[in-house]
């Protein structure tokens, strides 16, 4: 009559638990490997160290945005303003440094502060006024881009030939495999991503606040009834998201050296959301893993590269192909989930 002894068949349940938790990550990793193998087999340009460097670099940049998106999605919300925050930040950094001669710490500090405020405003509107995240961040998407274009008079912003040391954070390459001609060099952005991803993963999985986020994403009422300050946690998620969009935006402009206010960062929120969903975040909230999200970003980046290298004639339909691949992933995921729950329903449960 009593609960089963721990250890008896809990090993089995733990394995299945681990598999279920990791299932999506393995799935998306498999997809990434398949795309890589296909591309490598189709063109010998894919494995050139320059191409790999570029892929790793872009994965790092989009990965940072996607981790931010993941935190909001885990709470059951959405942030559509990521691309516009990237744009605002992307034009502001060169604008402040070159047009207004701010010092680097002042400009970077101000931009991080602006990103934080943006996130807090989103969070407050969502929690205190109970506005829908979709509406709040859709308005943000329009607002920040308009602001960026207004501040700069719609003029492209860049660093010219200055700030080379600062730009190394985004452009730098670390010769980890020796400095022979053509050897792979690790993009410096990778280090930024690794640090941020580890901090994010530890936060999500090892702290009580990460647990609170997952709990409230799954059932906000039950979380509130358990004494969790759900409003504060949601606020935190939006703040994290916009801060990471700010960090990402600065890295993007430091790398590219030119930010055109009308299209810089366009659609980046959708890449970030797609990567997060591919990586195992449920838009219903309560689910997500950081490593999955990073792999999800890699899939987005590699897929685009595949189309460029293998099917250059199809570049016009790039979005259609990416959309189709993500949709197939979602369909397969849903079918697997149903199959698993049908199997579980067949089993005897207490």
């Amino acid at each position: 009559m009593t609960g089963k002894e721990p250890g008896a068949d809990s090993l089995l349940s733990r394995i299945s638990q681990k598999l279920r938790a990791g299932g999506k990550v393995y799935g998306i990793l498999g997809l990434l490997i398949m795309i890589c193998v296909y591309t490598a087999a189709s063109t010998d340009r894919f494995l050139l160290s320059g191409n790999i460097e570029n892929l790793v670099h872009r994965t790092a940049l989009f990965g940072i945005l996607s981790i931010g998106a993941a935190f909001v999605i885990i709470t059951g919300g959405i942030d559509l303003s990521i691309g516009s925050v990237v744009c605002l930040v992307g034009v502001l950094l060169p604008f402040l440094l070159t047009k207004h001669d701010w010092t680097v710490p002042a400009a970077v500090g101000a931009i991080l502060m602006i990103s934080l405020v943006i996130g807090l405003v989103h969070g407050l509107l969502v929690t205190k006024l109970r506005l829908q995240p979709f509406v709040v961040t859709l308005c943000g998407l329009l607002f920040y881009r308009g602001l960026a274009r207004g501040i700069t008079n719609d003029q492209s912003q860049g660093f010219g030939s200055g700030f080379q040391e600062l730009r190394l954070i985004a452009k730098g390459r670390i010769p980890i495999l020796g400095d022979a001609e053509g050897a792979f060099q690790l993009p410096a952005t990778t280090l930024v991503l690794i640090v941020l991803a580890i901090v994010a993963a530890v936060f999500l999985n090892k702290t009580i606040y990460g647990r609170y986020l997952l709990a409230l994403g799954n059932n906000p009422e039950a979380a509130r009834y358990s004494g969790i300050n759900t409003d504060r946690m949601v606020l935190l998620a939006y703040a994290i998201c916009s801060m990471l969009a700010g960090v990402g935006g600065m890295l993007f402009v430091l790398d590219i050296n030119a930010a055109q206010p009308s299209d810089f960062g366009n659609f980046y929120e959708l890449y970030a959301i797609a990567a997060a969903v591919l990586g195992g975040c449920s838009l219903r909230g309560g689910e997500g893993s950081i490593i999955g999200v990073v792999i999800g970003s890699a899939v987005m980046v590699v897929l685009s590269n595949t189309i460029n290298l293998v099917h250059p004639n199809y570049q016009n339909v790039e979005f259609a192909i990416i959309g189709a691949v993500i949709l197939s992933g979602a369909v397969v995921d849903e079918l697997v989930r149903r199959w698993l729950s049908a199997r579980r329903a067949g089993m005897k449960v207490g």
Binding site: M1, T2, G3, K4, P6, D9, S10, S13, R14, Q17, V349, G350
Partner: peptide, 10 residues
């Protein structure tokens, strides 16, 4: 409470 489950991870 004599909770009947397949373990704490269920």
């Amino acid at each position: 409470l004599r909770i009947k489950s397949a373990g704490g991870d269920q």
